[in-house]
Design a protein around this nucleic acid. Structure first.
Lengths: 246, 246
DNA sequence: TCAAAAGTGTTTTGGTTACACCCATGT
DNA sequence: ACATGGGTGTAACCAAAACACTTTTGA
């Protein structure tokens, strides 16, 4: 798809364009994505800003006739971040009667959550309905449009439940990181503080980390070590069914 | 709703009737239910038999304009079993491109699973597309139409995960039962055998069971005790977050 | 009297939790 | 020197797993 086609495709994802191209999409059905990333130790999510309403929402899109719902989610993610082949999983479908734009048709939304490499994503608004797309710190995000606050809460709940069975650490920390950084992620997802000693012991014992070197001191007093996930051992651990949950 | 209206409503749930009353339903969207019950110690599911195809499928229905997707699931369950107010929860949405009746429109299905009192349900076919609706032993059920085998597998996986956090025992065993019966349920859901001593100890220690009396020996050598769930204590245990998983 | 199913308690073990001290560095 | 954040090991505790014997009753 060249950039012009991409542009058109992006436009078609916006609700105003459903009227003219309605036959290309399944009516009343949408997909919304909760995209997680980590930067400076904080868990962040991707939001899009609606020009007219001056409010924020999750990135979303409509389901084309010729694609599966999973593919819709991939497409939405690709259009908003440029990323492909990332962790992306359905977590819940929202079907209340009052869903949809006020005065417009009622919509059912399939919610997906994604785990992406923050540094690889290039947030891109559709340029039609939304004029900005950017990362927000999960704690500190604005109130969202529609029922998207509930979606975020539920995505986070799913993430919490699956912390032990999905490659969450590996996906959100593809590069070097320090154990305090990783611990902050776990604490954010779990919503409670963890004991530093126990956390480090457990992570070390899992045997999925490689110590890379010392971190050149940036903001801390003593320089923490840098680690990297060993992708193979990580996969083996998941395969074995080892719980990576804290 | 009187019985004539119910009849009409049932008919409208069938795909052949979507043509004439299409404006009353969301197109391309359906709900399918995996209804679990227990009888004679076995875990069973409710299936409907398609007259023309001579095959079995999960009970399902379409989403009306004036109801939420959750309400669709309740309605489907009510029409097929006569039951209301039962445990009913969404577990996954199926959106592959190849879903739907061959040659007909493509459909996206929201899957729900229900836990019902076997003895209270009166299985009822819609009488239009399906001429029979009955319980099947989970192990021993026929191959199902569409992707419904995958749905059952996934519903079972969800049940397994949620065994410790939902009122599964209480809902599936509303009346008296024996601990070996309860253990068989756990073993079926978990797909592995459990230690009798540990199982009984754990269940007793949870403090949610009341011993009712001795079972008049039916098929066993020594008569097992009869128990009943204490609904209040069960609810309290779930509230506290006690794990009821084995 | 023997085979089959049911009831019960103890020991072991492994994982989680709690907890205290020393190290490095910037102020 | 001291305040701040980082690294490490040990003891206590609890829940799960392993395990053996006795009781009942139909054949």
């Amino acid at each position: 798809m060249d950039s012009r086609d991409l542009r058109i495709d992006q436009a078609r994802t916006s609700i105003e364009f459903l009227g003219s191209d309605a036959h290309e999409y399944l009516p009343h059905l949408a997909v919304d994505c909760v995209v997680f990333g980590v930067h400076e130790g904080d868990l962040r999510i991707l939001l899009t800003h609606w020009t007219k309403r001056d409010r924020w929402s999750l990135p979303g899109g409509f389901v084309r006739n010729d694609e599966s719902v999973d593919e819709t989610a991939s497409r939405v993610l690709r259009m908003r971040t440029g990323l492909d082949d990332v962790f992306l999983e359905q977590f819940h479908t929202f079907g209340s009667l009052d869903r949809g734009h006020p005065g417009a048709d009622r919509f059912v939304s399939v919610g997906y959550y994604a785990l992406v490499d923050f540094s690889m994503a290039t947030p891109t608004p559709d340029g039609i309905l939304t004029d900005e797309c950017r990362w927000w710190n999960l704690c500190g995000r604005p109130d969202l449009l529609f029922d998207h606050d509930e979606m975020v809460a539920r995505a986070l709940g799913t993430l919490r439940l699956q912390l032990g069975t999905r490659p969450i650490g590996l996906t959100l920390f593809p590069d070097d990181f320090t154990l305090p950084e990783l611990q902050r992620l776990y604490e954010t997802v779990l919503g409670r503080s963890l004991d530093r000693r126990n956390f480090q012991k457990k992570m070390r014992e899992l045997g999925i980390l490689t110590r890379v070197g010392e971190k050149s001191t940036e903001n801390s007093r003593r320089a923490p070590y840098l680690y990297r996930f060993d992708a193979e051992k990580y996969a083996e651990a998941l395969e074995r069914g080892d719980s990576l949950a804290y």
